[in-house]
Design a binder for these strands. Sequence first.
DNA 1: TTGAAAGCGCTAACAA
DNA 2: TTGTTAGCGCTTTCAA
Lengths: 337, 337
Amino acid sequence: MAITATDIAKRVGVSQGTVSSVLNGNGAKARIAQATQEKILAVAKELRYRPSFAGRALVRGRTRSIGFLCGDIRNPHFNELADLAMEEVERRGFHLVLAVTKWHTAKNDLETFDNLLARGVDGIISFGSAVRKGTPQYAQVRAEQFPFVCIGHAVAGLPCIISDNHPGTDEAVRLCQANGHRRLAYVGLPEPAKERPLADAAARHGVSLDTYHVPMRPGQWAQVSACAREAAHRFAKLPERPTAVFTSSDHLAVDFASGLWEMGVRIPDEVSLIGHDGTAAGGAMSPPLTSIDFDGAQVLQLALDMVFAQIEGRPAAVEPVAVPSRLLVRKSVSLVS
Amino acid sequence: MAITATDIAKRVGVSQGTVSSVLNGNGAKARIAQATQEKILAVAKELRYRPSFAGRALVRGRTRSIGFLCGDIRNPHFNELADLAMEEVERRGFHLVLAVTKWHTAKNDLETFDNLLARGVDGIISFGSAVRKGTPQYAQVRAEQFPFVCIGHAVAGLPCIISDNHPGTDEAVRLCQANGHRRLAYVGLPEPAKERPLADAAARHGVSLDTYHVPMRPGQWAQVSACAREAAHRFAKLPERPTAVFTSSDHLAVDFASGLWEMGVRIPDEVSLIGHDGTAAGGAMSPPLTSIDFDGAQVLQLALDMVFAQIEGRPAAVEPVAVPSRLLVRKSVSLVS
DNA sequence: TTGAAAGCGCTAACAA
DNA sequence: TTGTTAGCGCTTTCAA
């Protein structure tokens, strides 16, 4: 069994309460004799004492941990964000608990959310859209004022941060247009928040837009790669191909590009490619991927500020905060051949 | 405040102990009346009761969570493994708590390990090499018989799983040799476990081997990408380039390939590339990366079996378990031009 | 300057 | 069939 504060107390010959005060740095406040303090500290170190997480959490009513709910930790969009979040959260003395839903189903999303709650996290940052009006979880979060922030989806009545994809998308379409592209394509999951700005921009700049939804049913999440690859194969065989492809994510773009490569279609010479999310992983592609970025660092900072504010009792605004996207120009768009 | 078992007890008009029994499925064993059980269950659901994590952990002495200690969650090797681990661990009713060290320093590695302990995890799977003979952590793990498994590094006296890189590396070198390659290169971190088998195989197959260590000092971990890219730039300018490059990881290979692309050097036409770890991310490169795989799924399964065995009180073997690597042939190796 | 004690929410053994 | 009780390890207040 691990060693407890009581063990130390016995060794030093003081009460457990005294040990607790000293170990929490309240020795001075509690007016414990210097000598006693030193002895306690020494014994604690010698025995490699570490306070019981559970004991502490129980009495404090806090676990000092934040839940991070996302669809897939393999997706660079999420693992890069998780990485950032971990760093920041730890800087604040908290831990990050990851939970991935694999986007099986909305039901699974909610279950994962419940899991996180069961895990005793003090707040949740969610990239899913499951916690929405009408679900018991939504009611609970509101009733308990549970610290919560949703990123990427507007949830009425709850704090959330959404990306305004218009500016970045418009820039991207303009770039394509300037490079002579007249036929664009969207390849990816059905995502109105990304497709609408694209359709708008295409119309505005007088270029056509074809849409190829990657077929992904619930439970198929593991096969994104395969789907994107197949989509690329089909795309390559199209009689008259669009010359620039917008994908719903960098993650998908990687596989799509690989699929094109297999078909002998080269980027950016034969097809230009534009991703979404502005991940570092996109930047490490061959060629580096031009992408519609949403400034993850800023969004995350905002999100964390919002959860921590709630944890500290300051309520967060519930009007969606919109962060404008912008184009991250790299090397996957070129003059149409 | 969240709702407690006592709240339910009051509402139903029974004792808190009764509520606890029923909610833990011990209603029958405790011979609680059917009607009472139903009432309790109903109220619990209505109030969306969730047992306090801390309370439960305290009395059980377990948090039902496993720590996953790795260097970098952006590295596909780790995030793919973490993904697998999460799934399996959750299947067993546990949670996975991630902790990344960024490989700053050994000291940081140990601190992160301590963090995980402080977090109250019931066991740790570590990809770091910090917990080694001589450290207090090592002593503690042994003294407390703390459930622990190290992957990738042999730790005397502690359960560990290492990869025997010889078979896969030999296959890879043979493949290169058969394709006409006479000059190989190793690009990556100094990693004897990978370099030695490579040197052996090169000698055995009569091909030369140059070594280019990517300069990475502690704290520079964030710049792997930049380093790999620069290494590629330097490599591209070499007067007489080796024709096949072995990297220390798929992660690094991605950036190295991108760097080569920028210099106009094409894979596999001008340079063949072989990665390490056999990640899905490598398979999504253009071209798909041939890689020395170590069967992460099997290793992880083994590792989890070992931690869970220890958690359940069965001690695990402390002789290193070696898993042979094998070559994952994809499309980044071709005939030398 | 320190000890004693209450109580956080829960489980489990034992009474009633 | 159900209630009571004793802790789990900790923080914190109040006494001594």
